[in-house]
Design a binder for these strands. Structure first.
Lengths: 257, 257
DNA sequence: TCTTTAGTAATGGTCGAACCATTTAACTCC
DNA sequence: GGAGTTAAATGGTTCGACCATTACTAAAGA
């Protein structure tokens, strides 16, 4: 009932402009890459002022539907699917401290588990080959020690993203990316890498890929979850992690209804 | 690397205003319910024009951070956690047909499974009592037949939300709500209820709660997943669902990277 | 002829002042 | 004391002007 009707602030002209353009995009009348007329032309099309029109464009830009370029030949370009917006909106919620690191980590555990299990049944030979190539890359960085930990983390992310992509379900891709990015921000700040951790994590990746290759969903899923858990455990062991951000670890914070 | 730096369009003044206000809100210097100064005051605080300031307010409003009220005593009021925005952004993605119903349903399956399993270990006696109360409410609506299916669906949602809340992890709550709302919109349009379906779904709910009460995570999880699957199956069987929206069911659409 | 450079026009970004529409609160009148 | 009226504050809109950036073009120079 709550979401059946939208606010009826029809006095707001820019809102009407937003809805018209949004509808045109969603209906496919405006395709990604298309350029809208200039602000001065649009203001005449919509019979409004430039200020009001610009407020509408601001909203569309924020929604991720258009991108605005400067200079001659610039203007409003229709963007592809606004996937980034989903991430950003959740980003904001996390920064609101409504969601702590333990919450994120627990959630990621579940997601990684499902992704790994789902990927098991859907990975093609090419997928496996790509995964193994990434694993080899990771191995080379691990061999070079903690100085290359940044590169290793990058490959680690790519492997997880590849798994999400293999599922063929964009929901996993977008949700995974969002959680990973948010959680990684904490790890970068409070979790210094050691040789042992690097090796341990590489082994996880290697084995996860191996299980996916074998098609062993249960083991792949379990290991993927364990893989995420290890980070939380290291964070707990780490002095910086415990002392610097106690709030992050306070757990069961209730969300505001 | 991609998400480490933000676009450096510092020529855009309104962006700077957005960031300053957003930071103040996220840092807690501005609490939910606080009212910002009037546009005419803000424009002086930020040393900018009213038009530019309004563009900033438009962005903040779109982000769900503020709500704007008219008339004397009106102005920009800081809102609580912008949970609705997460739903809206996904809604847009779905309408972009980047995410189909099968994608949503599969994802929801995983989430409901994890939520049910996690809730098993965390439900207090009060939680169980509240769940059972909801189940009894659902039973009464089922008894009244399809005429009360709308009410039943509402209770169904409340039960799932209650389970998500029991986990104590706000990630589950917000993600669940986002997926549920989006998916329910399809079901409402293309899935007419029958007596048998009502009964079947009630039985699911009854048993899920029973398993949670027993603390049987595995069975609760399996049944919760099965519960979601049933909807997809009914959608498949249903002529309206198959013919009205074939595109929704085309499955493996690849996201634009 | 090719390259460099200066110029020019289109376009988004900003500014200021004015007016309109809505809402609240105070005030007047009965 | 209640109902209607008025006034002021505030967001919404409009207009006109100017600035900053950019791509294209033509002129100048090698």
């Amino acid at each position: 009932m709550i979401r059946m009707f939208r606010a009826a602030k029809q006095n707001r002209i820019f809102q009407d402009v937003v809805e018209q353009i949004e509808k045109a995009i969603v209906d496919g009348k405006l395709q990604a890459g298309d350029t809208l007329p200039s602000e001065r032309d649009l203001k005449e099309l919509f019979q409004t002022s430039r200020g009001t029109l610009r407020e509408a464009l601001r909203v569309l830009e924020q929604k991720g539907l258009i991108e605005i370029k400067l200079g001659v030949g610039g203007g409003s370009v229709v963007k592809a699917a606004p996937m980034q917006q989903v991430c950003d909106s959740l980003d904001l919620l996390v920064r609101f401290q409504q969601i702590s690191l333990v919450h994120l980590a627990e959630f990621r555990e579940g997601i990684e588990g499902i992704v790994a299990a789902t990927a098991c049944g859907r990975a093609t030979r090419r997928d496996i080959a790509a995964l193994e190539k990434l694993v080899e890359k990771a191995r080379s960085y691990v061999a070079k020690g903690v100085s290359q930990s940044r590169r290793f983390v990058e490959i680690d992310k790519q492997i997880h993203q590849a798994l999400a992509r293999i599922t063929g379900n964009p929901m996993y891709i977008v949700i995974h990316q969002m959680v990973h990015d948010n959680i990684q921000r904490y790890y970068e700040r409070f979790l210094p890498w050691t040789e042992a951790m690097l090796q341990e994590n590489f082994d996880d990746l290697y084995n996860i890929v191996a299980f996916v290759k074998k098609g062993d969903a249960e083991q792949a899923s379990d290991l993927a979850r364990r893989h995420v858990q290890r980070f939380s455990e290291h964070m707990m062991e780490n002095e910086a992690g415990k002392t610097a951000l106690p709030k992050i670890f306070d757990g069961q914070a209730q969300p505001s209804q």
